[in-house]
Amino acid sequence: MNNLFVYLEIENGKVEDVSLELLTKGRTLANQLKCQLEAVAVGSQLDNVGKQVFPYGVDVLHTFDDARLYPYTSLPHTSILVKLFEEEKPQIALMGATSIGRDLGPRVSSALFSGLTADCTSLEIGDHEEKKEGKTYTNLLYQIRPAFGGNIVATIINPDNRPQMATVREGVMKKEILDVNYQGKTVAHDAKQYVSDTDFAVSVIERHIEASKVNIKGAPIIVAGGYGIGSKENFQLLFDLANTIGAEVGASRAAVDAGYAEHERQIGQTGVTVRPKLYIACGISGQIQHIAGMQESSLIIAINNDPNAPINNIADYVITGDVETVVPKMIKYYKKNSK
């Protein structure tokens, strides 16, 4: 009762990073709240989930193992969480802001009439005073998220309803093992008691899921392009630089929306949050929503022909000039001076 729950996303038996990141954050919050961290695994062939998640400090792992529960479909997973939450009454429930978590979370919150905050960038514990009613709430979950295209940051609370639900994007929280020998217990539930046959109203006919080819999140150096790059073809220049110096190519939302780069390269509040040792921003003006996803980079170089571009404010080096001029020179002088 009153514990913190994390819904685990599992692909081919492997717990996804986003879930491990949530467990890491969940463990910290659970310590503050002096409650247990519990994880929920719904799927098929879940035998290896325990050893993947216990090191993150999971006290209880709930498993629901049934061949029909993998791959994910909305209704069966919703039914399981709704019933489990009615039994266990968690104070907080977290899930990934992924195509699964954002499909599942709203349904669960609607069924339980518990508030859900999407795409949180920070989660904290704090108090709240409702002055009109003279009520004080302690140890609420502050769900902090950008709104209005990233121009404001809102702190959302659910004073009266439980669980307090939130989704978080991959890469926003850090993944950190607590103790490789941490001992939690597994509770295997009978999935049939939680789902009905009518829940299987949608069936997956075909599925092509590939491990992401792009590893923006883990890249030590990122060359990122914005709308200012001008075309998909011009993005090739960034790939040339990235290949030369051993970097990955990222993009702003504007560049992705314009079709210059794939969505999986998107950096910012609606994409991935990155913390590389070097971030080279090319033709990126620096909308708040982009800056929020890369400002923790150790070193930032901004290349822009607009000397007043907002990104320059957070850059360590500002190169004022055309990307088409500057980037080839960077390639040239790297080749000349390396080794």
Binding site: G115, L116, T155, I156, P159, I314
Partner: peptide, 14 residues
């Protein structure tokens, strides 16, 4: 069920 506790405009440290 959700309430907005606080809204801040985003200011980055220059």
């Amino acid at each position: 069920p959700t309430k907005v506790k606080k809204i801040e405009s985003v200011v980055f440290q220059a």
